[in-house]
Nucleic acid binder design. Sequence first.
DNA 1: TCAGTTTTTATTGTAACAAAAATCAGATTA
DNA 2: TAATCTGATTTTTGTTACAATAAAAACTGA
Lengths: 206, 206
Amino acid sequence: MDSEDKKNGGKRPGSGRKLGTGTYKENTSVIRVPDSQKPVIANFLEAYAKKQRLQQLEGQLDSVAEFTQLCEELDNLSLPLYQSKVPAGLPSPADSDEESRMDPNGYLIDDPTNTFFVTIQGESMIEAGLLPGDKAIVNKRKQASIGDIVLAMIDGEFTIKTLAKQKNGDPKLLPANSSGKYEPILIQGRMQFAIWGVVTGSFRKF
Amino acid sequence: MDSEDKKNGGKRPGSGRKLGTGTYKENTSVIRVPDSQKPVIANFLEAYAKKQRLQQLEGQLDSVAEFTQLCEELDNLSLPLYQSKVPAGLPSPADSDEESRMDPNGYLIDDPTNTFFVTIQGESMIEAGLLPGDKAIVNKRKQASIGDIVLAMIDGEFTIKTLAKQKNGDPKLLPANSSGKYEPILIQGRMQFAIWGVVTGSFRKF
DNA sequence: TCAGTTTTTATTGTAACAAAAATCAGATTA
DNA sequence: TAATCTGATTTTTGTTACAATAAAAACTGA
């Protein structure tokens, strides 16, 4: 009733749960957050998890077009998350006493709801006319195409670069600075990468 | 040497760190997050903490100096979000005040009555970030100083250049293009020369 | 081959902990 | 008397530890 009771003994080399099978397909760690912001962050993470899940489903990307389309889809999926609070600089209706004048707002911004501004940091896009301190106008609904200047997030950091394609079809991000100080960024599978919007214009104050 | 050695013994009822003296002025708890999103969330929380801190300060203002400083800080508060970090995905806790949005018109144009636009032609000011097709914002009332980018008319033709001074004190106009294709323009007595305004900003559409 | 069982390993929310920070009371000093 | 010092006390906070759960492969018996 006991000595002969063993049925399935022995080693199981190679068994066990596989790496990267968790919610986020990556390592996690613990951080402390204020209670009031927990639901906000939870929402954000839920959207992120969904994105990761879909990206894995989609398998290997073979074109940037597809990829950005995917991003768009994902963006729509997670839209409820930040729908209410997109930090867009909504242009106020111009007080056009001088109607013959050009209006920068109208000229620069086609789609106010989906437009926001980002301050340029660094000189990596200097040859595209984007200097440090400039404000880039970003449309987050516009479909990104090869050659567009885009706002992308790589491993949690934002950058503005020109979108291009690698030989294998994966995206890459090109700086516009021939000094050699900035390298193209090749997007690889293990990097967290997302296109947040297309830069449709810019402005600056001297 | 021992019985009389007690100096500060005993209970300290009411002592100890006060509640709500932490970063967020509220309870916290720990959650697990994917490593790649840690910087994003950290930035979000930083903004949130700043907001909480300032809100607490608001309750104990006792001088005008402090108040104006606070206003400045609150003003800046909405910017860090756009500057490099979290344009969307996480709603900005600092941005809940509606009025802190940015308006390109207001940002670019201080003095509408005396402001007009000029389309850049040529590449002579490319290193100042002015590309062909850009719109330069010109204030015609502003006093031009050495180092300013100005709209000048020389012998009936308009040009945009940086204003500088020759050794003899006469003005000269410097291009911002190191290719050597553009030469400084030295203003001489027999030339017809006038400064029409100071370039205070620029904008473009891609 | 197949289904159920067992072993193995990764994930994940939470508890626990220790160091740091903040605050107060009594003692000491100026 | 007021300011400072010292130790006690409590909250905060980043990290570690852990146990429960989940996922995947190996084994067993048919």
